[in-house]
Write a protein that binds this DNA or RNA. Sequence first.
DNA 1: CGGAAGATTGCATACGTATGCTGGAAAGCC
DNA 2: GGCTTTCCAGCATACGTATGCAATCTTCCG
Lengths: 344, 344
Amino acid sequence: MGRAPSGRPTSFDIAYLAGVSQPTVSRALRGDRSVSAATRERIQRIAAELNYTVDKNASSLRSQRTHTIALLFFEDGTDENLINPFFLAMLGSITRACANRGLDLLISFQRMEDDWHTRYQDAKRADGLILLGYGDYALYAARISQLVAQGTHFARWGSIRSDRSGATVGSDNLGAGRLAGEHLLESGRRRIAFLGHADEHYPEFAHRYDGLCEALRAAGIEPDPALQFDALTNEDAGYRAASALLASGRSFDAIFAASDLIAIGAMRALAGASRRIPADVAVVGFDNIPSAGLTTPPLTTVQQDISGAGDRLVETVLAQIEGRDPPEPRLPSRLIVRGSSSAI
Amino acid sequence: MGRAPSGRPTSFDIAYLAGVSQPTVSRALRGDRSVSAATRERIQRIAAELNYTVDKNASSLRSQRTHTIALLFFEDGTDENLINPFFLAMLGSITRACANRGLDLLISFQRMEDDWHTRYQDAKRADGLILLGYGDYALYAARISQLVAQGTHFARWGSIRSDRSGATVGSDNLGAGRLAGEHLLESGRRRIAFLGHADEHYPEFAHRYDGLCEALRAAGIEPDPALQFDALTNEDAGYRAASALLASGRSFDAIFAASDLIAIGAMRALAGASRRIPADVAVVGFDNIPSAGLTTPPLTTVQQDISGAGDRLVETVLAQIEGRDPPEPRLPSRLIVRGSSSAI
DNA sequence: CGGAAGATTGCATACGTATGCTGGAAAGCC
DNA sequence: GGCTTTCCAGCATACGTATGCAATCTTCCG
C-alpha cells in the first residue's frame, strides 16, 4: 500500500501511514462523504501531524480548477509609477473577497497593448479574470468581445449601460451624477460646470455627466454644453480643465468633477484665480480618495461602494465559472458632504 | 507520432503537426539549444498559429518551479478596510519588478495570527515569499525564524540592523533620521520632538529616532527623551501623540513624525492648538505619500526609494532561490522639502 | 575508410493529485 | 436465505509537461 515517507510528504505518505490507498486520502481530505467518518478523521489527523499540504500544481492539473483569480489592472501609459488610489482601494476589497472564498489572487499590471487577454486563463493560471482600468473604452472594447468569444470567465469594472456583453459590474454612475447635481442645486447653485470627458470613450464619466444633466432638467434648468470640459483622471488634467473653464469667461458657481484627482487639480486652479471655495464656487468630486478629506476646504465627493464592489466582482466571476446566475451588477453610491460645497 | 489535435492544444498536438515528438516540442519552446534551429522555428510557428500556451500547472508540477512569488501583507488588526498608502506604492513597485523578470505575483493580506508561514511555499504555489507589514516586530520575529529554519525562500521589508537572520531589505532609517534632523537644525530648530514608537518592537521607527538623536548630538545638543511620544502609523495616533506633546507643556519648535500619517494627524492637533506651521513648529514626515503634498502647508517628508525597493526585494528572493549572492539590502532615502519646515 | 566526437531527436518516465469504475462487505427486504 | 441496495475503499488511469538516457545521424579526422 504505497511507499514509505521521504522528503516533503505526499498523499502517498499519508496513505501509507494510515494504512489506506492514496485515492482514499485525497477523498478524505476534501471531505468526500464516501469515506467513513472514522478513516477520514484518522487521515486528517495524520496529515496535520506531518504538516501535509496538497500540492496545488498537481491538484490543479488533475482537476482543471486552480481556485485562483487573476486581477488585471491597466492604464494607458500615463502614470507609470503612480497607481490610481481608487483602484488601490478596490484591490484591497477584491483581495478580501477572494480570501473569504478561499481563492488565491494573481495580480498583474498591463499596458493596453499587451496580449493580456490570452495569457492567464489559457495558461491555466486562473479560473477567471477581473479587469480593472480606466482608459479609452473603445481601445479595449475589441479585446473584451474577444474574451467573450473565447468563453473566458471574467468580470470587469466599468459602466453598465454601455456594454451588455460580458459581465460588467459598476456603480450607478447616472444615479450618482444626479445625486451630486441635486446636492449642488439644493445649496443654491445654478451654473454647474462638469470637468471630465463626456463621450462614449469614457462611459463612466459620461454617465455621471448625464446624471448631472438629469438633475438640472428636473429643476427646470437646461444644461449648458459649454460648461463641460474634457479631463482625464489626474490632477494635471483637472488643473488644465479648470483653467480652460476660467479662461472661457463663462460664469459658473459650481464644479462637478468626474474624479477627486480632477477636483483637486481644479481647486488648485481656482485658488490661483482667487475664486473662493465654496463661497464663489462649490466643488464636488468623485471617489472619496484618502486625500479628499485633506484639501482646503475638505472636498465634498461621491463615495462608491468599494467593499461591495470587490465582493460583487468576485461573485460575478464565480457565477460564470460555476454556471450560476450573476448577481445584480449595479452598486449604489452615496454623497459625502464636506466643506467644499456648503450653501452660499 | 502522438495523437491528433482536439480541444485546447497541448504539446502533443504541436508535436503531431510538426512531425516530431512531444519532448522535442517542450525543448524547442524553451529555447533549448539541442533542438536544431530549423525545427525550433517550425515548432514555434505552429505553436503561435494554434495559440498554444504552456500549461503552467503541468509545467510547475514537473519542474518544481512556479515562477511565481507570493506577496504577503499583514497588519495587526487595525485598519481593516484601509491599506497603508506606503505599502500600496510598494505593491506597484513589486508588481513591476516581477513583471520585468517574467514572474507572476500572488497577493494576499494576512492577519498576524494566521498560519501564513506555511501556506504558500508548502503548497508549491510560489517559489518564494515577500513579507510586508508594519506591526510589532516581536510578534512575528518567531515566525520569521521558523521560515528560516524551514528553508523557505523569502525577503522582508524592514529594518536591517535588528535582524541578521533571513533576508531583510530596507531603507537606511538611521541615515534618513539624521537627514531629517540635520534639515531641521539647519532651519534653526533646537527642540525637536519625535512622534513614533522608539523601542525594539518597532525597529524602523526606532532607527529614525536614533538618526535624529545622532544629528542633534553632532550639533552639540543632547536629545531630550521627554520629547519622544509613542505613535503607531495612523492619523489618529499622530493626533493623540501631538496632543500629548502639547499637553505636556514642554516647549518645542519642530516635530519629526515617524510617518506621514502621523505627521498629518499631528498637524491637525497643532492647528487645533493654534500653533502656526512652520512659524511656531516645523513638521517633517516620512514616506511622501500622495496626500503629503496636499496638506496646508505642504508636508516636508523623507522619501524612500520605493521603486528600488521592489526590485531589491524581488532580486533578494531570486538570489535565494537560485543560490546567488543577495544584493545590498540597504536603500538610500532623500528629503523632500516643502512648506511645513521653512526656516524660522 | 574506420572510428570518434558532436549534433539531434525519441523513449520512458516522473511530478502528485483526482476521479470513474469495480468489488466486496454490510445492511435491508420479502 | 437469497435478493437488492448502500456504503466504503481500492485499482487504474489521466492531467500536460520536463528531463535523463539511449539511439540515430552527421561530420570530421587520421
